[in-house]
Every structure is written in C-alpha cells, then in structure tokens.
C-alpha cells in the first residue's frame, strides 16, 4: 500500500508544480507548449520497452513493437516539431 501512496503523491506533486509553472506560459506559446507536453506523453515508450524485459509470445511482441513505434513517433515528432516552431518564434523580423 505505501507504494501506491508514493506513486499517487508523485503524480499529485508533479501535477501541481506543472500547473503552477504552466499557467504562467504566455498565450503566444500555447501551441508549442501543447506540442511539447504532447511529446512528453510519449514517455509510454518506457512502458513499451519494459514489455520486452521478460520472455513473451508472438502476440505480445507484436503489440509491444507497435507500442514502441507509436510512442517513439509521438516522442521524436513532438520534440522536433516544437523545436521547429520555437526556432521560428526566435527569428527576428526581416529588416523593414
């Protein structure tokens, strides 16, 4: 049971810190913000990797591989696109 409490408190604490920090993000960064957090949710790739830590059947291997691929897609694509957007934000205006 203490393990459960620990996990719950990790969730609650990080949620609250995240809430405090993110509510200060200016509206003009909302799209990159969503894109970055979206990439972070690709953390499920860890769970997918752990599926392969024990021997398993073909079905599990197939599902696991699919899970890894889609989580990696989310992860890499999300961070890359956020970076691309933020690079645009940084660009100064052409000399008018």
């Amino acid at each position: 049971m203490p393990e459960v409490l620990l996990m719950l408190s990790v969730f609650v604490i990080v949620f609250l810190i995240g809430y405090l920090l993110i509510s200060k993000v200016p509206p003009r960064l909302h799209t990159p913000l969503m894109s970055m957090t979206n990439a972070i949710s690709g953390v499920t790739v860890l769970g997918a990797l752990l599926l392969f830590s024990v021997e398993s059947g073909t079905l599990v291997k197939g599902l696991g591989a699919l899970a890894i691929a889609s989580a990696a897609f989310n992860l890499v694509g999300g961070f890359a696109i956020t970076n691309r957007m933020l690079k645009m934000f940084k660009k100064r205006k052409r000399s008018a």
């Binding site: 620990l6 995240g18 972070i40």
Partner: peptide, 24 residues
C-alpha cells in the same frame, strides 16, 4: 500506465501533460 508497471518516471512525466492539457 506508469501505475500498473510501477514506474515513477512514467507517472511523473504524465502529470505535467495532464496539468498542461487541463489549463489549456
């Protein structure tokens, strides 16, 4: 997903995403 596999990292990474989505 992190709770079922008892992985703190998953829980800690999911939390700010949930927070950000709620705020938006």
């Amino acid at each position: 997903c992190g709770i079922i596999i008892q992985n703190r990292l998953l829980i800690a990474c999911g939390a700010p995403v949930a927070a950000s989505g709620s705020i938006l």
